[in-house]
Every structure is written in structure tokens, then in C-alpha cells.
Design a protein around this nucleic acid. Structure first.
Lengths: 299, 299
DNA sequence: CGACGCAATACCCAAAAGGTATGCCAGCGA
DNA sequence: TCGCTGGCATACCTTTTGGGTATTGCGTCG
């Protein structure tokens, strides 16, 4: 049996006249007669009774009509869904983010993507950098967000934005009286840094920036994550640094201050994905990321 | 697109190797390659990525595989259901019965039919003889049960059983002391008869039987239905007659007695249906009716 | 670097779908 | 009652297309 048989039978059942149905199908009457006969023979069931004025459906014919319409609509739906999947408009996208990535630009991009691709189910997995790479290789995720990365042969690494760093000080700290501060202040105060976990990471980036400015900072503590770090500053344990997006973290007793003398005091937000992944959904998401990057001019 | 494409794609998706899939489909590899290419082209979507060791599904391919399996099972189900409908094993049967037909052999036949055709939905409509004929002509029912019928050109009338009649008397009546009675007793007692409604009916049948025995009964009342008639007897209003199947009607103060001298004191139970109705479900039901008739030897 | 495995291509044949002409039958009007 | 009409079925031809065989092309892996 064939989808053609279904189409033809539906036409005949709706017209109740083989000739008219043939007209509607843009074929001539004899082949249609033959196809219907074939269908009946294949099913071993009489679907039509031939009357002097046309045809009528038997009960089996009624049953088959219902099923045929059902199948036809399912086929149309299947084609539609597959096309949409092929365009990256339907399906599932698994993304790896790092612990506090949720404070960065990531939510904005997720939002943009969901608006333009409402039928793609986005599943976010919190994982470390190494876990992301492992998950990419096993195809458990298609995309990961991260900050500090060494190049890998099979993984593409695409910069999204360079975020300027902000100083975080206690509201009672003398530096809080300035609107903006000098990066050199970092040499004079004990630093709380983060995260613990796979190196190189944010700690190394800060050390590198300080080295560029010609000093080595005093590190009082290295804590697990940005929230803990800022909480310690709120509690009076020194100062710290965060990417601009983390300044949305509104803890009482803490103020954020930009640097007036260090354009290079930035931290990258990047995404990583398999070099060999051509999936339409990933490409669609990369499109959103690139649009986002254009819009933010690299920072 | 064609059901063949679905079958082929499912095979390829399951084998992840076009050559092996071709083997499984009992065709050679090149036509299968071509069919899959055709399918991809028609959908405008890449379903497979060709690797050195075979093929892999794209996300769109995964989507299409799911849909294709879905469609295939629906098609199989459609064929199965249509075949069963063609054999009268699936569908709906509308039956007309008369008011108290539910007391006769009808429930037994319905039961037999339901046991052998569990997926046919039997819908019973209570209607008079004339309503049944009208409903048959309009195809609102496929079969009617009735007792007294004149032949009609378009309606077949098939006898099911001849039921012997039973005398119904009050438990205090002198006749109740006999195990069986003579039909001639009817000449000596006022008769309650039924039903009111389209003639000829049960009343005429009783009159005919009496005439055959050479007397005219005294009719005290004609009431709507058998239950009312028996209830009147229970209340002391004369005697009546019922078909054997109605003796299941167990009213207090009433006894049923057979006739020892009248083999012909019977009433027919018949069924009626359109002479032109070849529907498998009706034929199946008629089969049950005929089996029932054989089993009961005509009475 | 050559052998192997697999998909793709080229080309042919056969099956089957579609077309035209015609037959056959029932109902209907002159 | 006898054509005439409308409808499905049949016969036969043409064209499309599915399937087969042979071969090529392209990675990968000893």
C-alpha cells in the first residue's frame, strides 16, 4: 500500500464519484478505478459499493476513510516537523554552563534564542570546564559557556564578549568613596579570589593582569565561587574583582567600582562546541551568540 | 513521499549502514541510496551524515525516524482495523427492538453476538414496528426484531423462533390448580390483551388462533404492553396469554400454564433487515441468529 | 601505501502508473 | 420501448520510476 492509495481513496470517498475524484486529482478516471480496485484487493475488503449514480462507502470504507485521513495528517505533520528540525527550529539543545554563569550574559542569550526558537527545548547543565569538554566529546551537550580556555584540536572556542572587571569593596572601605578607582589599588589590599577548581581560571587571569601592571597581589583567600567571594567582602574580608555582569549580584554592604586606568582589565566569556558539529540547532544558537556579540561590540 | 521511503529510512536508521539496510530490505544498495537521497531532497533536509563507517542520523533524522515509526504503526493498525471491519468484527450495529423484546430471546442473541464480536458496538433502539421499517429505510438501524409482519418489497423478514404461548392466570383462579390447560378455556374467560399500537399485532394473532379453534374470545381490555397485561391479571382482571419468554416476568399472584392441546398456539419472533444490505456486520449478526435458530429447533 | 569498506554514480531493464479509446449497464425521458 | 446519458470497468499503449549490475570515489586502517 502506498500514500497515493490513501490520497486517491480519500478523494473518491469525498466525491462519492470516481470520475469527479479523478478530475480533482488531475488524473483520468480509469487509473483511479484501477488504484481503488488494487487497494480493495490488497486489503481483501470491499470499500465501495458501485451504484448507478456513483459509489457509496461500505462500513469498512468508512473505517478506512477515517484512518486514511488520520495517517495523511500525521504524514503532513511529520514533514513539517522534520523540516523545522532541519532548520534548527524544533528539537533540543543541551548547554553546559559554569557555576555562576547564570549571572553573566548567558541568560540574555538564552532568552533571545527562546524568543526566536520557541520549539527548541533548551536544557542547561551546570558543569565545570573539564566536564563540559568531556560532555561535548560524548555529545551529551552541544555547547558550553566558559571563561578561560586552552585551545583543543576538536573543540572550537569562540569569544563572545570581553567583560570589564569591577572592584568589589565593603561599603565602609575608603575606596568606596571614589566613583572609580585605579587598578594599582589592588597592590595595596588583600584580595579574595575564586574559584577553586581546574586551572587556569579567573585567579590566573587576575594574576596575569597584575603582573602586566608590574606587581604581585596579596591573596588572602581563594573561595569556591563568586557569590562566596562577594559575601566575604560584605563581611569585611578584603576586596575582590568580578566581571561586570556579576555586579547584578546585589549583596548589602558591598559596592562595585569600575577602574579608570585599565582598559585591559577584562575577562573573556566564550563558548565552546565541537568543530565537527553541523547541527542546525547549534548553528542557530551560534547565530544568536554572534548577533549578541555584534550588539555588544566585544564588551 | 511514499510509505516505501518511510520503510527504507527506518531500516537505514536502524542499521546505520545503507548496505546492511539494503540487505535487510532485500534490495541492492544503490537503489536504497537513491531513495534516501530522494527523501532528503523532497524534505529539503539532511537526515543522515555519511561517515567512513556508515551513516549517522542528524537531529532532523532522529525526528523523522520517530515520526516514521509512528506513521508505520498507524498504517498497520489502519489495515488491521479495516480488515476487521470488512469481516464484521469491528464497527457498530444499530438494532431496533419492540417495547418488551427485552423479555424474549433477543438478549441471548445479543449476548452471543457480543461474545463473538467484542469490538462491534451494538446500539439498541426501542421502536415500534413501523418506526423500525422507517429506520431501516433510512439506514438508522440495520436490523429490527418483531413479531407480526406483513411482507414488504425491500425488507427481508426472517423467522427466528416460534414461541409457544402460555396462559397467565391469577394464583387464586381455578385454572391455576392444573399443571396444563386446554386452549378451549379461553372461550370461557374474559381476556386481557395487548399491545395497543399498529395492527396486525399480538391481539390479531390470538384472535386468529381462537378462530382456528372455532370460537371468538371475550376481550375485556386491550392494554399497552405485556407487563401491564400481566399486572392486570395479578390484580384479578381476567386472564391473558404471553410468549414463553415472557414467563420470566415474575409478578406475585400470577402463574403461567402451558396448553396441552394446542401445538399451533405459538407466536413468531422474526427479524427484519434491508434486502440490499450486504454489510458484513449485519451478515455476522444474521449468522448468530441462524445458529440460535438451529439450536432451538424452531421453537 | 595498498587493501578494505562503504556510499555514490552510471546505465540498463522491468514493473507499474497514467493516458486514450471503448465497453457495459442502469436509469430516464421522448 | 428505445435511444441517450452518466457512471464504472476493461483493453491497450506510453511514460515514469524503481530496482539491478558494474564501477567509481573516498576515507580509514593495517
Amino acid at each position: 500500500m502506498d500514500l497515493r492509495h490513501l490520497k486517491y481513496f480519500i478523494a473518491v470517498a469525498e466525491e462519492l464519484n470516481i470520475g469527479r475524484a479523478a478530475l480533482r486529482l488531475h488524473i483520468s478516471q480509469p487509473p483511479l478505478t484501477r488504484q481503488i480496485q488494487q487497494l480493495e484487493e490488497e486489503l481483501g475488503v470491499q470499500l465501495l459499493v458501485r451504484t448507478p449514480r456513483g459509489v457509496e462507502l461500505t462500513q469498512a470504507g468508512e473505517m478506512f476513510l477515517e484512518e486514511a485521513r488520520n495517517i495523511r495528517s500525521l504524514v503532513e505533520q511529520a514533514i513539517e516537523r522534520t523540516k523545522r528540525a532541519g532548520q534548527g527550529k524544533l528539537g533540543r539543545l543541551d548547554i553546559g554552563i559554569f557555576g555562576t554563569g547564570i549571572l553573566s550574559a548567558i541568560p540574555q542569550m538564552l532568552h533571545l534564542f527562546r524568543d526566536t526558537h520557541p520549539d527548541v527545548r533548551v536544557v542547561v547543565h551546570t558543569m565545570t570546564k573539564d566536564e563540559q569538554i568531556e560532555a561535548l566529546r560524548q555529545r551529551r551537550i552541544a555547547l558550553g559557556f566558559n571563561r578561560i580556555l586552552s585551545p583543543l584540536p576538536d573543540i572550537e572556542n569562540e569569544l563572545i564578549i570581553k567583560e570589564p572587571l569591577f572592584l568589589v569593596v565593603n561599603a565602609n572601605h575608603p575606596l568606596s568613596r571614589q566613583e572609580s578607582v585605579s587598578f594599582m589599588e589592588l597592590a595595596k589590599h588583600p584580595l579574595v579570589l575564586f574559584p577553586t577548581g581546574a586551572r587556569p581560571n579567573f585567579v590566573d587571569r587576575v594574576m596575569e593582569l597584575c603582573a602586566n601592571m608590574g606587581f604581585t597581589p596579596e591573596i588572602s583567600q581563594i573561595v569556591g565561587d563568586v557569590v562566596t567571594g562577594v559575601a566575604l567582602v560584605a563581611g569585611g574580608f578584603g576586596i575582590t574583582l568580578v566581571p561586570r555582569s556579576a555586579t547584578t549580584l546585589n549583596l548589602p554592604g558591598v559596592v562595585y567600582r569600575p577602574f579608570f586606568d585599565s582598559l585591559s582589565a577584562t575577562i573573556d566569556l566564550s563558548c565552546i562546541y565541537r568543530k565537527d558539529d553541523q547541527s542546525a540547532i547549534l548553528q542557530a544558537f551560534l547565530g544568536v551568540i554572534r548577533a549578541f556579540r555584534e550588539q555588544h561590540g566585544g564588551q
